[in-house]
């Protein structure tokens, strides 16, 4: 009985610790993906920026603007800049820059931008120029 209680206690703690920690490496990977996207915007390299978008976001952008991703993204007037605060939870991340908020998701081929040009709306979800 004592062993069972100890095992139960250990398992609960492990669950909690596993859930709360271990995000350091993933934070770095999400940050790198955001830097790729922002760097491409800084260089005016729309093709590279589009490659950093998730397939669904790129498709949505193409469909809503009625033109190729590269042209459609260029028309959004997004700005790059250095990465600020990064928050990673599960397979999702939020990255802040001086002028923008990005949302990313970890897909099979790594972290991708699912929304960019996002502005807060109080309690409601962010309104995003791309994605969202």
């Amino acid at each position: 009985m004592r062993n069972a209680a100890a095992a139960a206690c250990g398992l609960v703690l492990l669950c909690g610790v596993a859930a709360g920690c271990g995000t350091g490496q993933r934070e770095a990977a999400a940050e790198a993906a955001a830097e790729d996207f922002l760097g491409a915007l800084d260089r005016g390299d729309a093709a590279a920026a589009c490659a950093s978008l998730s397939p669904e976001t790129a498709e949505e952008l193409t469909a809503s603007e009625g033109e190729a991703c590269e042209e459609a993204l260029g028309a959004q007037g997004l700005t790059g800049g250095p990465v600020g605060e990064v928050a990673v939870w599960g397979d999702r991340a939020q990255v802040r820059t001086d002028a923008d908020v990005l949302f990313l998701a970890e897909l099979d081929d790594g972290w991708k931008v699912v929304a960019a040009g996002c502005a807060p709306q109080g309690e409601k979800p962010y309104r995003c120029e791309v994605g969202g």
Binding site: C15, V17, A19, W89, G90, D91, R92, F103, P125
Partner: peptide, 17 residues
Amino acid sequence: ISGRSAYNAGQLAQFQD
């Protein structure tokens, strides 16, 4: 602890803080 982690993943998926 684990609930906060799961909740925050859901928040980010819905474009919330």
